[in-house]
């Protein structure tokens, strides 16, 4: 079993590096945000994790045409993922729209 995990680590070494770097990047990018923007930022980040939709599309697209369990679960996943992406970005835009038009032209 150890060998299996070792092999897994070696094959996924690059991905693991991306993960570590992304963690630090996420912290860096966010840590100087004014509290005014906390809500839109949370909402925007919420839309970004909707990227899980890509997994749903892959599941859906590679399902056998007669495998109805996979088709139905995949379809639900695509619908829910799209809700997350589209709803998330639209809600964030609505929030920020109101900030924008009221911004002082300094």
């Amino acid at each position: 079993m150890f060998q299996e995990f070792a092999a897994f680590f070696i094959t996924n070494y690059r991905l693991i590096t991306i993960v570590i770097l992304s963690i630090f990047l996420g912290i860096e990018v966010i840590s100087r945000v004014p509290s005014v923007l906390h809500t839109p930022l949370m909402s925007g980040a919420n839309a970004i994790h909707g990227v899980v939709i890509i997994g749903a599309i892959i599941v859906m697209g590679s399902a056998e045409p007669n495998d109805f369990v996979a088709l139905i679960l995949g379809f639900l996943a695509v619908v829910l993922g799209t809700l997350n992406v589209v709803g998330g970005f639209v809600v964030t835009d609505r929030m920020l729209e109101m900030f924008g038009k009221k911004k002082p032209k300094k």
Partner: peptide, 27 residues
């Protein structure tokens, strides 16, 4: 979402997911 990125060896799911994961924790 990031685990999905691992599953499909998909870089954009991975970066998107982890970014939100860490940024969300800081927030």
């Amino acid at each position: 979402a990031a685990f999905g990125g691992f599953l499909y060896d998909n870089p954009v799911m991975l970066t998107g997911g982890i970014l939100v994961g860490s940024a969300g924790t800081i927030l």
